[in-house]
Write a protein that binds this DNA or RNA. Sequence first.
DNA 1: AATTACTTGCACACCAATGTGCAAGTTTCG
DNA 2: CGAAACTTGCACATTGGTGTGCAAGTAATT
Lengths: 218, 218
Amino acid sequence: MTRDAAAEPEESPPPGAAAPPRRSHARANRARILAVARRELSANPEATIDEIARAAGVVRRTLYAHFPGRTALLEAIADEAAGALRGALEAAAGPADPPEQALARHTLELWRVGDRYRTLIALGHKSFGDGWFEDLTEPALRNAVEILRRGRAAGVFGDHLPVEVLASGIGGLLLALLQSVNAGRWQDTGPGAATAVLIAAGVDPARARETVTSLTSA
Amino acid sequence: MTRDAAAEPEESPPPGAAAPPRRSHARANRARILAVARRELSANPEATIDEIARAAGVVRRTLYAHFPGRTALLEAIADEAAGALRGALEAAAGPADPPEQALARHTLELWRVGDRYRTLIALGHKSFGDGWFEDLTEPALRNAVEILRRGRAAGVFGDHLPVEVLASGIGGLLLALLQSVNAGRWQDTGPGAATAVLIAAGVDPARARETVTSLTSA
DNA sequence: AATTACTTGCACACCAATGTGCAAGTTTCG
DNA sequence: CGAAACTTGCACATTGGTGTGCAAGTAATT
């Protein structure tokens, strides 16, 4: 169960979506459907509308009362996820940290929205037009690349890979770690992942640990 | 275009598959379908039979002449991939290398069957029963875990993550690197990836490079 | 308590993909 | 060359998921 449901201002008229529910129970339903759908779809992007509805404890017909169609549901989820991701990136783009700290912060911040990130990846290239996915996902990469470039110039990170490649490699690593947590193989609130990322970027393990510690204990 | 098509002994009677073609052109067709299907399916696991057939320059009906159904085609691909993967792992399981070399060799060997590995992942949990995917994929993980455990005992690798987690993390990293190559962002025949993996495992960059060099120049 | 908002349970139309049957072609091998 | 092996192009049945209409239920807000 994902217990977020932070009271959002409720986007007014995203044209195409059904009118926002007025009765409380209905609102709750809508939210629950959304949450369950996210969980279900990151596990299996091809989950049936029916499966999702059932998993949310509703009948298919009811889901259609909230979302005009599969696409609408997907869009709702994707939008939310994209928003969260964007937020995380902004939060990470703090003042001019030294590169190591920047990368650590980047990871930490991304980790917090891990489930949305995962969802976005799972939804992936399919479900929508071509550039769509890249537009949402690349900002994260871009940021990583930026940091790596900066750090490499300062001789902080390894130069064993082209920055773009390293960045996407780090993305893959991060995703796998996220999966480990999701599978219950591991518990981590971020520091572990951040350390791993720094190390993968070529930072000395001891120093990586220090950097992360200094950030998380602050 | 994947130009492999090494003349294989032609598996005799895998019960369920249509009788092997007798006419040369037919054989070629079958092989091409298989190759194209692999390419197509790793890009998009939900590719239609029709899409695959067309991409292979054949009509749908013809594909069915070679493979009784979608499942059969998938199985053929998966089997081939699984075989390649198994082979790679055996090749990697050389004599008792020191852990670093073992991990490097493991990566190098896996890299050579990268496209099959990718395919296997892309086919993923879907398409077949539950345990199926794990049975084929876990050997690689298992091997990695084994090596990591050994190396950690010797103090060669970092202990920033539980071995299982590190192993799967490395898997993710490897996959992302594979993707980079596949997307044309990068060229590498293995050494680069192996180095990156070693570094991610906590080996000192300089030493990682040496290890890999010693293996690839041999 | 009455109204109104939602939910549910069918039934149905629709579509895209799968898998088959059959009657032509076309090619390859003996 | 001629038979057998393949390919092709329909046509057709089947299936599984989607999306909609409507009538009857249940619950929340006034």
